[in-house]
C-alpha cells in the first residue's frame, strides 16, 4: 500500500459512524451479537461497526467485553457453576 493510499484510508470517514456515546450506549447489545454472529452485528448496527473500526478506545472496550462474554460462555459450557473464571494470575 503506497503512502498516499494509506493516508487516504486514515482520512476517509464513514458517514454511518455513530460516535462514541451511542456506541457505548449499545455496547453490550452489540458485543453479544458480535459474539454470536459478527456479520449479523455489523448488518444490524452498521454505524457502531463503522465506529469501532476507527475509534481505538471504543474498540478496546468492545474487545474487553467480548472477552468477558466468551469467558462466561466457556465456563457455562465446561462447568456447572456458570461463573466467570478467575483472571489468570
Amino acid at each position: 500500500m503506497s503512502g498516499w493510499t494509506r493516508l487516504d484510508a486514515f482520512l476517509r470517514t464513514d458517514p454511518r459512524d455513530v460516535g462514541c456515546d451511542e456506541t457505548l450506549r449499545v455496547l453490550e447489545i452489540y458485543a453479544e451479537l458480535t459474539a454470536a454472529d459478527p456479520a449479523e452485528a455489523r448488518s444490524r448496527f452498521p454505524g457502531v461497526a463503522a465506529h469501532v473500526a476507527s475509534c481505538g478506545p471504543c474498540a478496546q472496550d468492545l474487545a474487553g467485553l467480548l472477552e468477558l462474554i466468551r469467558a462466561e460462555q466457556d465456563a457455562a459450557d465446561g462447568a456447572d457453576d456458570g461463573g466467570l473464571p478467575a483472571a489468570p494470575r
Binding site: 474487553g64 472477552e67 468477558l68 469467558a71 461463573g83 466467570l84 473464571p85 478467575a86 483472571a87 489468570p88 494470575r89
Partner: peptide, 8 residues
Amino acid sequence: RAAHREVA
C-alpha cells in the same frame, strides 16, 4: 473477577 480479568 471480571475486573481482574480486564485489568490483566
